[in-house]
Nucleic acid binder design. Structure first.
Length: 197
DNA sequence: CCCTGATTCGC
DNA sequence: GCGAATCAGG
């Protein structure tokens, strides 16, 4: 594969959107994240000064070379990135999303708010619930920073408490949760018989 | 161990 | 110019 205009465009776009090199590489296909990073540098866009506020990389924050180029005050441009992808979003019992690879490391779950779906005694199959409580024993109990695309993002406990952690077990291909949690997060849309109210 | 970006350097 | 290998860091 070579860097055609199209591919470079996509690269630029994704990079400015804060996508990681590996994500971009996946998207492009035929290249590794190293290739992407190399290209990014050659293009001279190592400094993601396009949109995302500098606070975008907490974990992958650089060390030296990235000089804290003080932006011109005249450049407010916090370009409101319509970034729907957050761990919280991924954690929501959404109707199934195509990609589970949204989370830009950076602004992530604002502990305390929209977090999800605790397995309330809704109309989830008892088996599933049992599975979940069982899994919570073996859960890895990861912290926010330890989450990756391959770790179950199911939150357990109250975010406002010390007793808060994420499952962390291996996710099911493409999903944000492990098998057990996928079971309660993505319901077949059945169980709801006809609840006469 | 997983992942991130940065650099180097032979091709 | 390219990108694997390597490095530095979370």
């Amino acid at each position: 594969m070579s860097w055609t205009d199209e591919r470079v465009e996509l690269l630029k776009k994704m990079w400015s959107e804060g996508q990681s090199a590996s994500q971009i590489a996946k998207e492009l296909g035929g290249v590794t994240r190293n290739a992407v990073i190399g290209k990014v540098h050659r293009l001279g866009l190592s400094n993601r000064t396009g949109a995302e506020p500098a606070a975008a990389e907490p974990a992958a924050a650089p060390t030296k070379s990235a000089e804290p180029k003080p932006k011109t005050p005249a450049e407010p441009a916090p370009a409101p990135e319509p970034e729907p992808a957050t761990a919280a979003a991924a954690a929501a019992p959404a109707p199934e999303t195509k990609s589970a690879a949204p989370a830009p490391r950076g602004k992530i779950v604002p502990a305390g708010q929209p977090l999800p779906p605790q397995p309330s005694a809704n109309e989830i199959s008892p088996e599933a619930l049992a599975k979940v409580s069982e899994v919570e024993k073996t859960a890895k109990r990861l912290s926010l920073m330890e989450l990756t695309e391959r770790t179950c993002k199911w939150p357990v406990g109250d975010p406002a408490t010390e007793e808060f952690w994420f499952c962390g077990l291996p996710v099911q291909q493409g999903k944000p949760y492990c098998e057990a949690h996928v079971g309660v997060a993505f319901q077949p849309m059945s169980s709801r018989r006809d609840r006469r109210r």
